[in-house]
């Protein structure tokens, strides 16, 4: 299997999405869990409509950051040791594997963000401003979180504590994404420029992507 880089990436994405279609971890577990969390918040803090509208967008992004990570830890985009061995014996470029797993995680995260987003808008009556910028934010957060999640998942891969450890590692590192997403929503609401927040999130994407691609081989060899 010594085909081109992007061909390999496509193969990995195809494999991961196929696995998700068979198992349905994201669709039937992670997304309902995220939606449930949005339902629980008003039960705990009160159901005042204006308060919920005020905190709705922030709550949505917190849920995306905390629960979205679970998508990258999910079985769909994580390789077991035998699978890793098979991939490397077949000559899969570790960097292509990383990019492929990131792309499939990002696609699943987009699905998570969209469905949970609809639930959030419904439950909290969130105002949708500047749909194009909102779409850009959602896309950048999906890619950034997918990169962080995939990289950390491959760092802790095959260790027993993996599933519990990845969210602990990703959450503090995703602070720029959380602030970028929430602040650009506030920016839209109060008429500030948000290009700088979006570029900051893009910077995260570029930096993490570079580290992920460069360290894919040493990580696999370990």
């Amino acid at each position: 299997m010594t085909t081109g880089f992007w061909h390999q990436v496509r193969a990995v994405v195809h494999r991961d999405l196929l696995r998700e279609r068979r198992r349905g971890d994201v669709l039937w577990v992670t997304i309902p869990f995220g939606a449930l969390a949005l339902l629980l918040v008003p039960l705990a803090i009160g159901t005042d409509a204006s308060l919920l509208r005020e905190i709705g967008a922030g709550m949505y992004w917190v849920i995306v950051m905390l629960f979205g990570v679970l998508v990258a830890v999910g079985k769909a985009s994580r390789e077991t040791l035998p699978q890793q061995d098979a991939s490397s014996l077949l000559g899969l470029d570790p960097a292509a594997g990383f990019v492929g797993r990131t792309v499939s995680s990002a696609i699943l995260l987009l699905a998570f963000e969209s469905i949970v987003g609809v639930v959030a808008v419904g439950l909290y009556n969130i105002e949708i401003l500047a749909p194009i910028w909102l779409a850009v934010t959602i896309l950048v957060v999906a890619v950034g979180l997918a990169l962080l999640g995939t990289l950390t998942a491959s760092i802790v891969n095959s260790t027993t504590a993996g599933t519990a450890l990845v969210p602990l590692l990703v959450a503090p590192l995703s602070v720029p994404l959380l602030l970028g997403a929430t602040q650009s929503y506030d920016g839209l609401r109060y008429g500030h420029a948000i290009v700088s927040w979006v570029s900051m999130m893009v910077a995260v994407v570029i930096v993490v992507a570079m580290i992920g691609v460069l360290t894919a081989r040493p990580l696999q060899e370990s």
């Binding site: 760092i155 590692l169 720029p176 900051m200 930096v207 580290i211 360290t215 370990s222």
Partner: peptide
Amino acid sequence: RASRASVLGVLGAVQIPIVHFSVVWW
């Protein structure tokens, strides 16, 4: 352990300036 931890050590340190920047800006 060394390979995994060192990737995280680099990732953490590289992210810190961005985190710093975002928090200060916020």
